[in-house]
Measured scan of single mutants.
Amino acid sequence: MSIQHFRVALIPFFAAFCLPVFAHPETLVKVKDAEDQLGARVGYIELDLNSGKILESFRPEERFPMMSTFKVLLCGAVLSRVDAGQEQLGRRIHYSQNDLVEYSPVTEKHLTDGMTVRELCSAAITMSDNTAANLLLTTIGGPKELTAFLHNMGDHVTRLDRWEPELNEAIPNDERDTTMPAAMATTLRKLLTGELLTLASRQQLIDWMEADKVAGPLLRSALPAGWFIADKSGAGERGSRGIIAALGPDGKPSRIVVIYTTGSQATMDERNRQIAEIGASLIKHW
């Protein structure tokens, strides 16, 4: 067993022997301040990774656009098919120029040779490549099948209805392509620590998230040296922004954090800054 596999296998073990965790309302004060600064709703939840206990939450059962955070769930569904012998990570998928959609920095470079399922998941999570996500959605049967996968996990809230990039439209009061912070946090925890996926697939999923290259201005910008984070960000229309993450000190994750916002007129930089400040408060009061 590799060191990384050992780390993920012992996530519940280490967490069980940690000192009790206590909620700190100071972080919620910052979440509410972010709402004021952005002029928009902000949803927040913080779960203990081992027990699933909610440590703090704000608007945990209000719907927010998922945006690209759905790509972690998508690759979880792909990995479940791999575990069941219905898919192979090494299978190569070929596609054409007509398949390319807006923001496809990886797939646009491989029109000639195609990409493997493993490479597509890596591109979808680490670079948020939209064509990679659409190609992977095709392998599982489309958005409705991802929703069905989530329902089978016990998540009857999260739903995907459309493809990239239309799913980022974020129309107010439109339930399409949305989740709730509580539902997303619980589902992410199941994917990373539950028995739904094999140990190898859980490790692969967290490795992809740990290698995320496009979430630097968010929670990662607030992390002290030595902290662990595996995350996936999302951005959408109407001032929408979000991030889902597993993080913790001492090089291992111990909490799940989900943050979503929508309806702001603020710039992307300002949305990023507010999420980073929430992260800084979380870490300060850990």
Rank of each mutant, 00 (worst) to 15 (best):
Ala15Ser: 15
Ala170Lys: 06
Ser57Cys: 09
Asp269Tyr: 12
Val257His: 01
Glu169Lys: 13
Glu145Ala: 14
Phe13Lys: 04
Met66Ile: 10
Val117Phe: 04
Gly248Asp: 02
Ile140Thr: 06
Ala200Phe: 09
Asp161His: 07
Ala266Lys: 13
Ala15Asn: 06
Asp83Gly: 05
Leu74Arg: 00
Gln274Trp: 15
Val117Trp: 01
Leu197Asp: 03
Ser201Trp: 03
Arg63Met: 07
Arg202Met: 06
His5Lys: 13
Glu237Gly: 14
Lys284Met: 10
Leu223Glu: 02
Gln37Thr: 12
Leu79Gln: 03
Leu199Arg: 10
Thr186Trp: 15
Asn134Gly: 03
Val42Tyr: 06
Gly248Ala: 03
Thr262Ala: 09
Ile11Leu: 08
Gln204Leu: 15
Phe22Gln: 10
Asp269His: 12
Gln37Pro: 04
Ser254Arg: 12
Ala246Cys: 12
Ile171Met: 15
Ala280Cys: 12
Trp227Gln: 00
Leu38Pro: 07
Thr262Leu: 07
Glu166Asn: 13
Val8Cys: 13
Thr178Val: 05
Ile206Gln: 12
Leu191Ala: 06
Phe64Arg: 01
Cys75Gln: 01
Gly90Trp: 11
Asp269Gly: 13
Glu119Asp: 13
Ile283Gly: 04
Pro105Tyr: 05
Ile229Leu: 07
Lys232Glu: 00
Arg162Asp: 09
Ser80Gln: 12
Glu277Cys: 07
Leu111Trp: 09
Thr112His: 14
Thr126Arg: 07
Ile283Met: 11
Leu137Cys: 06
Ala222Met: 12
Ala215Gln: 05
Val31Ile: 15
Ala16Gln: 12
Ser201His: 13
Pro249Trp: 04
Gln274Ser: 10
Gly239Leu: 01
Gly236Tyr: 01
Ala16Thr: 11
Ala77Met: 11
Ile54Cys: 09
Thr158Gln: 01
Gly142Phe: 01
Phe17Pro: 05
Leu150Trp: 06
Lys213Val: 11
His24Glu: 12
Leu136Asp: 00
Ala266Pro: 04
Glu35Ser: 05
Ser96Gly: 13
Glu87Met: 12
Ile229Tyr: 04
Ile125Phe: 02
Leu192Cys: 08
Ile125Tyr: 00
Asn50Glu: 14
Ala148Cys: 14
Leu196Asn: 15
Asp269Asn: 12
Glu169Arg: 11
Arg220Gln: 04
Glu195Trp: 06
Phe17Ile: 13
Leu74Ile: 07
Gln204Asp: 09
Pro143Gly: 06
Pro105Val: 07
Leu135Lys: 05
Leu136Lys: 00
Glu62Leu: 07
Ala215Thr: 06
Gly251Tyr: 09
Leu192Asp: 01
Gln203Glu: 15
Pro60Ala: 15
Arg159Glu: 06
Asp177Thr: 01
Ser68Asn: 00
Asp207Glu: 14
Arg91Glu: 06
Leu223Thr: 13
Ser104Arg: 03
Ala84Asn: 15
Pro181Ala: 07
Val31Ser: 03
Gln88Asp: 13
Trp227Ala: 02
Ser57Phe: 09
Leu247Ile: 11
